[in-house]
Simulated scan of single mutants.
Amino acid sequence: MPDLLRRHLLWTGALAPLALALPSPARAQVPPAPAALSAGSTAEQATAGLDLRGRTILVTGCNSGIGLETMRVLALRGAHVIGTARTSDKGKAACASVSGRATPVVLDLADVRSVRDCAAQVHQLAPRLDALVCNAGIVLDDWEKVDGLEKQFVVNHLGHFLLAEQLLDRVVAAQGRVIVLGSGDHRNAPAGGIQFARLSGEGWYRRGYSHSKLANGLFSLELARRLQGTGATSNCVTPGHTRTAILRNSGNNYREDARTPAQGAATPCYAAVHPAMAGVSGAYLRDFTAGEQSAQQQDAAMAARLWAVSHELVARNA
C-alpha cells in the first residue's frame, strides 16, 4: 500500500487497528524558551522578530479573547490567518479589525455539518496549513446536550477533533503544527477520566469543562502519536487563567490575577510558530515550558480509545 494512502486511511480511522500498533512516542522534550520569555509575556513578545510571510494558519474562535489576539499577532507577523467564528458577521468584523491578511470562515463546532462545510471551504482556500490552532471553547454552568452528548465535550473537543481530522492532509502537506488549547483544569475531570459510558453528562455535567479539557489533552497526545514520521506535530497548551468572554455563561467569575488576552495568547502563538518548537510533538505547555499534568492526561490507552470513540461519533452524524 502506498505510504500516503496508508496515512490517509490511518487518519480517517479505516486502519484504526494498525494505528493502535504504532509505538507510543517518547515523552516530549520541550526545549528552553528564549530568556526574554516568561509568565506574563505577551503574544507580540513571543513572536518578536518572526517573519511569517508565506504561512497559512487557521485559528478557531477568532472573534474574541485569545483567538482574536492570536489572529491579530500572527497576521501582524505576516501570516495569512483563516479565522473561524460561529457567525459570518462576527468573523467578518474580527478579520476586518486586524492589520494584515485575515479571511473569515463560518464554523459552529456544535454542528457536524458546519464543521464539514468549514473544512471544505478551507480546502478551497489553502493547499497547506502551517498551523491549526484549536482555540474556540465554551464554559457552561448548566446541563446542555447536543445530539445526546454533553455540550462542552461536543464544542471543546469533538468539533475540533472532526475539524482536525478533515484538515490533516493540509497540515501534513506543510509539515505543520496542530495546537490544541487545553487547561490546567483538566485535573478536575470526573473520577476515571473520560466518561465513555455516560457521554450525555449524566452525573458529572458540573465538571463538564474539566472533562472537555482532559479530552483536548488526550486528543493532542494521540494525534502526536499518529503523526509520527510525517514531519507534522501536535501539542497541547494551556493559556493560563485569562479574562475573556468564555465565562459569560457562568457569572464572569475571574480571579484578580487573571491574565490579559495578550498574555493568554502568548504560549499558543509560541507553540504555533516559534522555531524553538520545531519538531516538538506530544507536549503539554504552560508559559513556554512543559506544564504539570495529571496521570490521566498522559494515559495513552485512554487517548487511543477517545480517538476511536470520537471518530465513531462524528461518523454517526455524517
Rank of each mutant, 00 (worst) to 15 (best):
S64A: 15
K92I: 13
T260S: 14
A272L: 10
R101P: 12
A271I: 08
A174C: 11
T42F: 03
G54F: 06
V314Y: 08
R116T: 00
T103F: 05
H123E: 13
L218R: 00
Q296N: 15
L313G: 02
Q263L: 09
R7P: 04
L50K: 08
H211W: 09
S250I: 13
L313D: 05
L5N: 11
H80T: 15
A300G: 13
T289A: 15
D111R: 09
A300K: 12
I179V: 15
S38D: 14
F153G: 02
A96P: 07
A33L: 12
V98I: 13
A191C: 06
R305G: 09
A290K: 14
V139D: 06
A28W: 05
D169Q: 12
R77K: 10
L22M: 15
V59E: 05
D89I: 10
G13M: 07
Q175F: 08
E256P: 09
G229I: 05
V115N: 00
Y270K: 01
G78K: 06
S250L: 11
L107K: 04
G201T: 03
G291I: 06
L214C: 03
D169W: 08
R27S: 14
L181T: 12
S234P: 09
A36I: 12
L52V: 10
C134F: 02
P31R: 04
L214N: 04
Y209P: 13
A136M: 07
V273L: 12
G203V: 05
G137A: 07
Y254C: 09
L223I: 04
A16G: 14
K151Y: 08
A75R: 01
G65E: 00
V180G: 03
D147V: 11
N156H: 04
Y205C: 09
R226A: 00
T47M: 10
C62S: 12
T70E: 00
V178H: 03
K213M: 11
D89T: 12
T233Y: 01
L167F: 08
A33S: 14
A94D: 04
A191Q: 11
V314D: 05
K213W: 10
V237G: 01
A119E: 08
A131G: 10
K145Q: 15
C118Q: 07
L313S: 06
D142H: 15
G279V: 04
H160P: 09
Q195C: 00
G217K: 01
R27C: 12
T103Y: 07
A35L: 13
V154N: 06
A224H: 03
V122G: 05
N235L: 10
L125V: 09
S41R: 05
G91V: 03
P239S: 03
G91H: 01
W143F: 14
